[in-house]
Amino acid sequence: MTAATEARPVTRASHPLRKTRLLRRLTPYLLALPLLGFIAAFTYVPIASSLNLSFREWDFLSPTKPWVGLDNYRLLLDSREFWNAMKVTAIFAVISVPIRLALALLIATRLMSETWVSRLMRGALFLPSVTSTVAIAVVFSWVFSTDYGMMNAILGWFGLGKVYWMQDPQIALWVLIFVNSWKQLGYDIIIYLAGLQAIPTELYDAASVDGGRKFHVFRRVTVPLVMPTTYFLLVISVIEAFQVFTIVDVMTKGGPAGATDMIVNMLYRVGFTLFDIGQGSALAVILFILLIALAVFKSRVLGRKVHYES
């Protein structure tokens, strides 16, 4: 991650012209500056600004932004909505991520071969992950719509009654988990394929010689050896679950009755429909801290796993 161990550019010694020396010394700064300028202006300064706003009260209209200390945090942590959003987000992550990863690994092991069928399948499965989330959410809003949707039509063929997929608080979150998994599955598969390709085939052969059956090989060889990939996907997916917004906004707006009110959806609602800028910023700061904690956890765990592997 650091450049400290690298050798100094050889170029310096080989370029004796004095007048260009200053320029050459400045070169890396000039090269890095544009990107860092953008990052400073649109990422780091805003973080400081969010922190500042989270201690204030403002509605976009008042000329003043009075300092209210920790009030916004207190109100948030006391509110039913915040804990509901945390709960919904956690359920989303805990349910969807393991199922998706298990499914992705199983499918990936089947799609290792370079036949045209498996290539076509990989393409088909991967397609949703590069497709517009809004479009997917709109299409699935139709699939799950009560009166004219595909799901209820299929249920109708079997003589079953209508299900209120997106109106029933017990079901709506499952619909979103399904749609999100449908979209993300292909990405997971691709990453697993990369992980699987790194496993030496001799290991499989050895396991087979031992008389292991297919499932045995999968459990004893494949699963442990792709563990680093699994950890990577696990953490990435949990982080991503904490940032889900688009499908919620298009399909349910966090409803019915808060059943799909994930944390970023709440952030958007508090900030840009209720215009409680203080609480919205406090929520953003909390989300930030949570995700940084996850990222640190990721680098620790992944670091350890990589170490174990080598």
Binding site: F242, L267, G271, A284, L287, A295
Partner: peptide
């Protein structure tokens, strides 16, 4: 600088929304 660049991978863009 490199650290600051890499760190943006972990920072949720939503914290920058209002500012």
């Amino acid at each position: 600088m490199f650290g600051a660049t890499v760190a943006t991978l972990m920072i949720p863009s939503h914290i920058t929304l209002i500012p």
